[in-house]
Simulated assay, not measured.
Amino acid sequence: MNTQRTLLLSASRTGNSAYLAHALPMIEQLIDADCRKILFVPYAGVTINNREYSHMVQRALSPLGIEVQGIHEFDKPDQAVFDADAIFVGGGNTFRLLERLYALQLLEPIRIRVAEGMPYVGWSAGSNVAGPTICTTNDMPIIQPPSLTSLGLVPFQLNPHYTEWTQSDHNGETRLQRLTEYLALTPSQKVLAMPEGNALRIDGDKAQVIGDPKSFWITAGGIKTEIESYRPFDL
């Protein structure tokens, strides 16, 4: 039986809101009342150190009465995953995050604990690594992980921060064009394009998009299909 409880946020903010403020109701609905000790993975934060990043998340989650401890504080980070009530994975650079998950041998412990029902909350890069690979991240490959294969908590690719904004005098590819390039070489896949402000909530074998604005499925050829928010679908 699949007991997964996962929340994948497109971003840590929506508009000019405070850090993680828009996500607090979603997080509160996901975690149990006895889930008070959160293990935080700060490794995507390239320009902020692990300690500062963990403290920032602690301040943001304080209204929920949650205690946050950074995984970098543990001598055995893999054991810390097995001992945690929940795991939160922050945003930043997806390549750096995945490189650290490989280096510390954390991918399999996280997969095991999530399958057992430990809540997983990710935002931005922390959501990207929940897909089968990080091939649809927006980030630059500033470091090379051993593989682009990631956690595979969901069977489809993710693209947080999805936007269709274009600048009239800019001649580079749009986000949709970039994702269409990926799908041209991987036509059997599909991409969940997640604008800022929404999230994917997973409960067992069911998932639903929550928040606003709408998300989209993007499939081979750049075909875009709007997803109805708050309507569960099978994983």
Rank of each mutant, 00 (worst) to 15 (best):
G221E: 09
R5K: 15
H170C: 10
A86I: 09
E52I: 03
V41K: 00
H55L: 09
E116N: 14
A23M: 10
P63W: 03
M56E: 07
L97H: 02
V68C: 06
Y43F: 09
I210L: 07
T14L: 10
L106P: 15
R231V: 15
H72S: 04
Y19I: 13
Y19N: 06
D32W: 01
R201N: 13
R175I: 11
A80M: 03
P146L: 13
T3Y: 09
T186G: 04
R175F: 10
H55N: 09
I227H: 10
T6K: 12
T6A: 14
Q144S: 11
T174D: 08
E99M: 01
T180H: 00
R231I: 14
R36N: 06
T186I: 08
I31R: 03
L192Y: 04
K37E: 12
P42C: 01
K214S: 08
G45Q: 07
G211V: 06
H170Q: 14
G65F: 07
T163D: 13
Q105D: 15
L192F: 11
A44N: 01
L148S: 07
P63V: 04
D139L: 03
L64V: 05
D78G: 05
N50C: 06
F88H: 00
V154A: 00
Q177F: 05
P187C: 04
N138M: 02
P42S: 02
H161E: 08
C35P: 03
P77T: 06
H55W: 03
W123C: 12
D205K: 14
L64Y: 05
A84I: 10
Q79A: 11
Q29I: 02
T47A: 06
L7I: 13
P146F: 07
S229K: 09
K190L: 07
L158F: 08
Y120G: 14
H55R: 07
I227T: 09
L106S: 15
S124H: 11
K76T: 02
Q157N: 10
E164T: 14
Q208G: 02
Y230R: 08
G117F: 12
P132F: 11
V209M: 15
D205G: 05
I48Y: 00
G122A: 13
K76H: 10
G131Y: 09
